[in-house]
């Protein structure tokens, strides 16, 4: 995408055209997803419901727990649009020939993935806004403006490693199996990364392997952003997530290139 933008100056009609193509692609991706209840309902409804149940109702008045759970449920919430939006959607579109047709059509390079990424980021932001509203009103979470904003930023961009992981699944899995595979990654990974309860309450061997899971690193960044206790430095976490994202994307692109 960067190469395309750099190559075309503002006066070039092709650059305007490419921008419009990206925008429309993202718009229709968002509409398509919003009208797919099997995707939209679980990803928009489950994180707020889970947060309401475990972060608000079952946590009466414990301020530290309320803040911890708000940060980690935000991470839990933004995993879904990335994993499902890519994992399931790409598997379906690959299997049903839509991906092939778009490859033959003169779609700007990367528009397919960029549109899906923008869609996932938009969903992540919506999910974060819902959780934040509940946290501020019902959950007893008190943050300053900068912290609310920082966590929103982490949520919005934190969806990207899960887009990459979802793409990896979607580029190989068959469409019927992909929701099960994604769930099999999503839920255990959330638990093992301490999103539902702090790692300190979990057995040592789970704590030992937590550094291997991307949600763990995103959760540490989220906790740091709201000034709560966290492990490791921000650069380490960012580095892990960046490398993880790039490696997954690179492998997935190779796999996708081989499927017709």
């Amino acid at each position: 995408m960067n190469a395309t933008l750099a190559a075309s100056s503002a006066s070039d009609p092709a650059s305007f055209h490419a921008w419009r193509a990206y925008a429309l692609e993202a718009k229709y991706e968002f509409l398509r997803v919003l009208r797919t209840p099997a995707f939209a309902i679980p990803s928009l409804l489950f994180p707020p419901l889970f947060y309401l149940l475990f972060g608000v109702l079952l946590n009466r008045g414990n301020s530290a727990a309320a803040h911890y759970l708000f940060a980690t449920y935000s991470v839990f919430g933004v995993m879904a649009p990335g994993l499902f939006g890519f994992g399931v959607a790409v598997a379906i579109e690959r299997e049903r020939g839509w991906l092939a047709l778009k490859r033959v059509a003169p779609m700007p390079p990367g528009a397919y993935l960029v549109a899906k990424m923008l869609m996932a980021m938009a969903f992540a932001l919506i999910i974060y806004a819902m959780l934040a509203t509940m946290a501020a009103t019902l959950g007893g979470v008190r943050l300053d403006i900068a912290q609310w904003f920082a966590l929103g930023l982490i949520a919005t961009f934190g969806v990207l490693p899960f887009c990459a992981l979802g793409l990896l699944v979607g580029s190989r899995a068959n469409a019927a199996a992909s929701p099960a595979i994604v769930n099999f990654i999503y839920l255990p990974m959330a638990f093992l990364s301490g999103l539902w309860m702090p790692l300190s309450m979990l057995p040592q061997f789970i704590r030992d392997v937590a550094v291997f899971w991307p949600p763990y690193h995103l959760a540490q960044l989220a906790l740091a952003a709201i000034g709560r206790e966290h492990a490791g430095g921000a650069f380490g976490h960012l580095g892990f997530l960046a490398i993880f994202t790039i490696v997954c994307f690179a492998i997935a692109r190779r796999w996708l290139a081989r499927t017709a």
Binding site: L31, R35, T36, R96, W98, A100, V104
Partner: peptide, 13 residues
Amino acid sequence: GAMLQATSLPETL
């Protein structure tokens, strides 16, 4: 332009 075999377009658009 192409019309490929066994293609299905996004159902919700």
